[in-house]
Nucleic acid binder design. Structure first.
Lengths: 211, 211
DNA sequence: ATATTTACGCAACGGTAGTAGCGTAAATGG
DNA sequence: CCATTTACGCTACTACCGTTGCGTAAATAT
């Protein structure tokens, strides 16, 4: 798949590794907004121009980094759609909260920290190509839970007319809305109530059905 | 309520007006990220220090500006909760889309523009006090539709157990999720489907009831 | 071997956010 | 009238993002 045999001096893979490691450290230490390209270059022992040869802006670098390190959220399919969704969304909420706190932990200073998710959203809005990466990221991330909903409908656990996509928007949207906009807490009880209320209209059985 | 009779030279109200006007113009022309404080100062014929005496950062200024100019979205209560919600959410979606395009219109250049909403969300995550302003903004903005849902439940058009707040999260959340994260389009048809699916579980009558 | 191509490091630069120091202007309090 | 207090304008400064120019290093092509 990849033996392009390019002409000039090849990119230093070593530099790639060192840059991404330094960036990872720095993101965790400082958060998105206090993250400085100059310091990445210094820590990776690389000229700043080498950074910009690979990623045109700080946003591009950080989105690429997050895309690389984002942990997959596993999806269980026990046949009990209500339970499976609760478990999945709770895991997502935990992950989001951890992302939100990145850069806040080691500094006892004034809380000017990032909110990585919010910054990624802004970066996606600033640069169309970053937006593509972010949307792709979420598309891959959401594929499994969407498939879960589709299977549930096929087995008759959801009303046939309901759209999996809209259903997922209701669930994930509520979480992100609270995280990014209202700042309201997202506890296990909230997730439970949300899933219950979303599934109430779908004819989901309160107890699991087997295929 | 306010005659504090302060000691020294008073703030120039004239400067306040000129600054906010200049900022408004500049935000519309350039969008959030290309908005430059230096240029605001120049256009308002004011020293840059005068800006920073009033708002500690660019984010603070722009959030204050948006809070000031945001247009109220009116809420009709015809007794048909399904219809009222559709109308309301469509108005919100239109407003959001207009906000998203701010700064893109007059430049034929490369599309690096802002997405005011995304930047506000990021600003709220960066500065706790800006977060307070933003949350307050949304709380006021959402008061009327929430009251609409409460009245609907009281008159029996919604199942008694359903939470207005969670219900609203499903609706607004789906919109903002599409706007900020997935970038999926938000048409009138989508709003219709969303409202239908959200209300399906609430026992909302398909035709209005009168009290 | 030599030419070509691409990457690297280095240094300097322009643009923007935000800060600091200082002299001056406009208000209040005695 | 005069001291005090706060606002204003001006200049200069630091920090960071992103760019440019140039000399050098490492690969391929002939």
């Amino acid at each position: 798949m990849t033996a392009p045999v390019r002409r000039g001096r090849p990119r230093s893979e070593n530099a790639d590794v060192r840059i991404l490691e330094a960036a990872h450290e720095l993101l965790v230490e400082r958060g998105y907004d206090r993250f400085a390209m100059d310091e990445v270059a210094a820590r990776a022992a690389v000229a700043k121009t080498t950074l910009y040869r690979r990623w045109p802006t700080k946003d591009h670098l950080l989105v690429a980094l997050v895309a690389k390190i984002q942990d997959e959220v596993s999806v269980a399919d026990t046949g009990d759609i209500r339970r499976d969704l609760s478990v999945y969304l709770t895991a997502v909420a935990t992950g989001l909260d951890r992302m939100r706190r990145v850069g806040r932990d080691l500094t006892g200073e004034e809380d000017r920290s990032a909110g990585v998710v919010a910054e990624l959203v802004a970066a996606a809005a600033r640069h169309p190509d970053v937006g593509d990466v972010v949307r792709n990221l979420f598309a891959r991330r959401n594929a499994l839970p969407l498939a879960l909903l589709d299977r549930a409908r096929e087995r008759g656990a959801l009303a046939p007319g309901t759209s999996s996509e809209v259903l997922f928007d209701q669930l994930a949207g509520a979480l992100y809305y609270r995280l990014l906009v209202t700042g309201a807490p997202i506890g296990a009880d909230y997730v439970e109530e949300l899933v219950g209320q979303v599934l109430a209209g779908t004819g989901a059985t309160r107890h699991p059905e087997r295929t």
